[in-house]
Structures are given as structure tokens and as C-alpha cells.
Design a protein around this nucleic acid. Structure first.
Lengths: 349, 349
DNA sequence: GTGAAAGCGCTAACAG
DNA sequence: CTGTTAGCGCTTTCAC
């Protein structure tokens, strides 16, 4: 019963041939006769043989596993990127091992080390919000492991990356808000030490400047990009300040928290205060009123990221030219930023 | 430049000691002098040494990686389970490699084979909706790899598992609906070949029987557990049939689709037709009206699943007693099933 | 077309 | 405390 995993040797012994022949047969080597191949295949099956990838990888000095580090998988944005990545990596014969940094620098470093130790063929990473230095990325590079960054990146390192044009997205959104007649636009987002929020702030600023709206007068809130953080902040904010025309939350979760705080305070969206989000999380289209937001084409981002990695994996040159792919986001206008008119009660037909 | 990864040998050579000593030092073996340990540590650092886990695993005949197969990671239910699993596996020194079956039997089989080939220490699996036979699970067992199933399981195999009491959840929900005065309760769910939908149907049936409501008269829709499937089904249904009192969608996504179809048809929820869901996806509390649903304690399920695996991993006996853990779900009453005020709008058959 | 032999990087007896 | 030796399971020259 307690039979250990069958090895190539077991098959060889059974067939009275050598392990090398079995190995070649299993790998469909051209110089092995059809007859032996069939025999090998057959007994491999009988013995319930499963190739030992770890031995094979060790011997070959390479494997077919790619590591991917994301802050968390339970954000639709990231799970979509993952789907995109898999859709190009799997057909190319690679498996993905997914790690969550949980937005912690320390965990991210550990993930990197695990992946290097496991001698993955490549690494895809989106930086945690806490990540301010890139020693761990340098380790990856030193280890000669192909690396591609996506979404939250670090531009100082000369590494292939795929990003959204967050500056443009925020710019477009802010323009939309300005054109709707809103002037007092509150900005809200995650820490601007992270590339994405930094850029989303820049885009916001550029639009305001173009429209000659003094930016000094605007309120900004920078905090954890979560529903709860925005909710708690807004509860207090609403007690002590006059209402802005609109809150531009550069994260749908923060937009949600903002809406909840407004509603708690008996305010109507968008009649009293408008709200805009960022990311187009699935719930954005489901809530009432429906959330105006930015579509990021996350799955496409995943595909692009994976393709960049494949380029490096397949190219023979040791020093591939780092490439940067910028994905254009798209403004999705829904109900939460609808222009103020007279009545805005949402009555279904 | 093109320096390959440093090995234990490189450190040994540098220090003029043997590889075994280095190995022991690195692993903090008690019988190695503090002095050598420090030296080894130091040059390991200098040489940018990263242990080669694949070699180590091969040698030791075991590793510290656990494989987890889920239908998809972009369902909150599953990403929560994953979070729960990691919260107990990581502290115990295990890494998780996550695979998506994408609800496809074929993909699930491939995942299993990859994991076996990678000689993972254990496997956690929730069956795809397509999975009707368990040959691949048998392979895992034959390979002596500890296995725990969760959520969508197969009870014929005598394997440790963690499930929700779906029968009870559906029963409670149906009772709630009946007590609200609803009688014509339409059931909706994924294929009943899957354990969870099977049980959610049984619970529904049991409640109806207890309340002496003839089940033959009820409408049922069994289809892909997605928003779109429910939406499309309901669009047609609403044209050709009289309205049920309430739709019990045993998936929040299907509940969402149902609500959308109702609203498209100019109907109000819950005034004209009530709706109930299952799973308590985050959007359930965010939509308007808020969705009545069932909380499944997914993270707790993850923790329980991981604990069962750890038991097997740590136990010395080859044949551990399979255990089954049943998690009690909880009814969450919100707005979509609110009792009708006027009962004269009651359309009776 | 197949076999013999060596070795990927590491660990674990067994010595001393 | 440290060195010697062997080998995990597989691939890959180099022979024949």
C-alpha cells in the first residue's frame, strides 16, 4: 500500500532498460523508437508515475514556474490582472505561483526570497503600499531572474513595467467634474509615496491648473485605500467643514466609504455632494446611484505584463532592453457625478 | 557580471571549510560553533547567497509548499478562504501556491498533476462545477500527499473536509421567507451536481415541506452561477410567467442579476418581488435595497481547512482519521426580503 | 537507438 | 565540533 512515488528507475527496472532511455522516451526524444516509447508510456501509467519536477528542475537548472507578488488577491483589479497573466503564461507552458504581500513591505521581502529560493523562472510584482525601497528587487536582478513590474512600480530601476496612465485618468476625471460645473473638488487617495496615487494626484492638479482653479483651497485626504478609512475620515470631516462640491476618491472603495458617510449625514449623492471613484470595481455599477469611475483594463494589463516577461524568458540575450507599456484608462460616467439640476431623485421608470 | 547564483560550495571554498559545515551553519545546527556560524552568515551575505530550495527539497524528500486549487480567486468567498488558509499555514512555515481551475474539470486535473509533480506537501481543493469524477483526487491519495477538500466536496471519498452547512443555510433562509408571508418561492442556483447547490436545494425543499407548501408548483432555475446567466434567464422568465413572491437565488451574483432584470421590467424589490441571495459578497451590503443573504464565514473555513491539513502534515501516522468540519452559516436579513405591507397586492394562483 | 557515467545543490548518516 | 561520503531523481554528454 505504502508504495512511494514511482521513479524513472522503477520504470527502467521493470522494462530492463536504462533510466536515460526512459527519460528520453518520456520527453519524446526523436531518437527513441516508437516501440520503446509506447512501452515506457504504458508502464509509466501502470506504476502511476508522476514526473518529479523538482529533480528535473534542479538538473536542468531551470523550471517553468513564474512567481507573482500582489498586495492582495481579493481586489478585483488584481484578480483580473492575474487572470490576464495566466491567459498568456499557461499556454506558454508556465505555471503561476501567487503570493500576497498584504500591503506589507516585510511580507513582500519574504515573498521575494521564497520565490528566488524556489528558483522561479521569472517574477511579476506590484509593489505594496509600504514599499519605499527596492533592495529586494535588486536581489531579484542580481539573481538573474527576469522581472516585470506592473501597476505600482518604481521608475528609478530600469526594469520592464506595465502601468496605467494614472495621471491621464485622474486628469480626465477632474476635467469631467469641472465641466459638470463642480469647482470645490476634494481629492482622496492612498499614500502618494505609491506611484499610482502620486500620479492620480498629479493629473488632478494639472486639470485644476488648466481650469485656473486654485489648488490651495482644495481639501485632500491621504490614507489607507479602504472603505472604512474613508468612511471614518468623512464622518469627522462632515462635522467640521463646509461641503465640497464633489469628492474625487481615487479608489472605488474610498468612494464607497464616502458615499456611506454622506448618506449617514442625510446628504444625497450627487444632489448635495457628488462622488467619483477609480478602478471600476464590479460593485461600482451595482450600487445606487451608480458610481462614476475609471476603467483600468486590468486583464489587458495582466496580458501585457506576461508578454513582457515571456519576451525576456525566450530571448537569448542576457540584457534585454527594458520596456515600458502604458495602458490608457477610460472614464466611465455614471450617476454619482451627474450635473446638478433641479431634482435628482432616482425614481425607477 | 553574469555571476551565477552562489552555492553552499562557494561559501565553503571561500572559508576553506566543507559544504556540510556550511549547510549546518546555515540551518543553525546546534553543534556548530558560534564563530563559524557567524563567518558563514557573513560570507553568505557577501556572496548574495540564496538557498536553493529545490535542491534542498529534493534531498530531503519533502518541502514546505502547499498547493491550493480553487475554481476562481476573484470571488470574495474564495479569496477570503485563501486569506484564512494563509493565516495558519504561513506561521507554520508553509508557503501556498494557488491554482485556479476556472470551473473546468480539465484545468483542475492539470492543476493536480502540476502540484503532484512539484511534490507539494499537501493539497487543498474546492471542486470545480464541472467536476463529476474524482480520478484525479485518487492520484493525490496514491501519491501519499495529504489532501483536504473544502466547500465543494465529494463525500464518497473518505477524505478530510470542511464544508458549510448549506442545507441548514438554505433551510433557514426559506423559513425566513415563509415567515414573511411569501409562498411562491422560486429557487435559483448553480448545477445541483455540485454538493453546495445540491444541499441548498435540499434545505429549501425541507422548509417547504414543513410548511406544507407544494414544491411541485415552484419554479427552479439551475444554471451558471453568474450575474449574467440570472439576468438573461429572468428577462425571458418575466415575459412569460406570472411573478413569484420571491426569488431565492442561492448565489449573490444570481441575486444581483435577478434584481437587475426585475428593475429593467419596472418592478420594485421587495415590493413587487422579493429577492434573497447566498454568500454575503461585499456588494450585498452596498446595493440598494440591501440584499438579504447568508454569511458563510469563509475565512474561518480557510483556517479550519488549513488546520486539518496541518494535522496530517504533522501527524506521524500514515493513515490519519479523516475528519469533517461543518461550519454553521448565518442568515443576514436586510432589505430585499422585507415583508410586504399591503397583502392585497398578493397575487395568488 | 540505447547505455554508462557524471552531476545539478543540498543534506544526513557515519566518522573522527 | 567538523569532514567524508553518498545520493535525492532526473538529464545529458559521450560512447557504441
Amino acid at each position: 500500500m505504502s508504495k512511494k512515488q514511482a521513479t524513472i528507475q522503477d520504470i527502467a527496472r521493470e522494462l530492463k532498460i536504462t533510466a536515460s532511455t526512459v527519460s528520453r522516451a518520456l520527453n519524446d526524444h526523436p531518437k527513441i523508437s516508437k516501440k520503446t516509447k509506447d512501452k515506457v508510456w504504458k508502464t509509466a501509467h501502470e506504476l502511476n508515475y508522476q514526473p518529479n519536477t523538482v529533480a528535473s528542475n534542479l538538473r536542468k537548472g531551470k523550471g517553468n514556474t513564474v512567481g507573482m507578488i500582489v498586495p492582495r488577491i481579493n481586489r478585483h483589479f488584481f484578480s483580473n490582472v492575474i487572470t490576464g497573466v495566466e491567459s498568456v503564461l499557461n499556454p506558454a507552458g508556465y505555471n503561476l505561483i501567487i503570493c500576497q504581500s498584504e500591503e506589507k513591505y516585510q511580507k513582500e521581502v519574504e515573498n521575494v526570497e521564497t520565490l528566488i529560493s524556489n528558483r522561479v523562472s521569472g517574477i511579476l510584482i506590484s509593489l505594496s503600499i509600504e514599499t519605499l525601497n527596492t533592495k529586494h528587487l535588486q536581489k531579484i536582478i542580481n539573481s538573474q531572474i527576469p522581472l516585470v513590474m506592473f501597476d505600482r512600480t518604481e521608475s528609478k530601476l530600469n526594469i520592464s513595467q506595465v502601468v496605467n496612465d494614472d495621471e491621464a485618468g485622474a486628469y480626465e476625471m477632474t476635467c469631467h467634474l469641472l465641466e459638470q460645473g463642480y469647482r470645490d473638488i476634494m481629492w482622496m487617495g492612498g499614500p502618494r509615496t505609491s506611484s499610482i496615487y502620486h500620479n492620480r494626484y498629479l493629473g488632478y492638479k494639472r486639470a485644476l491648473e488648466e481650469y485656473k482653479v486654485p489648488i490651495e483651497k482644495m481639501h485632500c485626504f491621504e490614507g489607507p485605500s479602504t472603505l472604512v478609512a474613508a468612511l471614518e475620515y468623512m464622518r469627522i470631516f462632515l462635522k467640521n467643514n463646509k461641503l465640497p462640491d464633489v469628492v474625487f476618491a481615487t479608489s472605488d472603495y474610498m468612494a464607497m466609504g464616502t458615499i456611506q458617510a454622506l448618506q449617514e449625514a442625510g446628504l444625497q449623492v450627487p444632489k448635495d455632494v457628488a462622488v467619483a471613484g477609480y478602478s471600476n470595481e464590479p460593485f461600482a455599477a451595482l450600487i445606487d446611484p451608480k458610481l462614476t469611475t475609471i476603467e483600468q483594463f486590468s486583464e489587458e494589463m495582466g496580458r501585457a505584463t506576461a508578454r513582457l516577461l515571456l519576451d525576456q524568458l525566450l530571448s537569448e540575450t542576457d540584457e534585454p532592453v527594458p520596456r515600458k507599456i502604458i495602458i490608457k484608462p477610460k472614464l466611465i460616467i455614471r450617476e454619482t457625478t451627474r450635473k446638478r439640476k433641479k431634482s435628482n431623485t432616482f425614481i425607477k421608470k
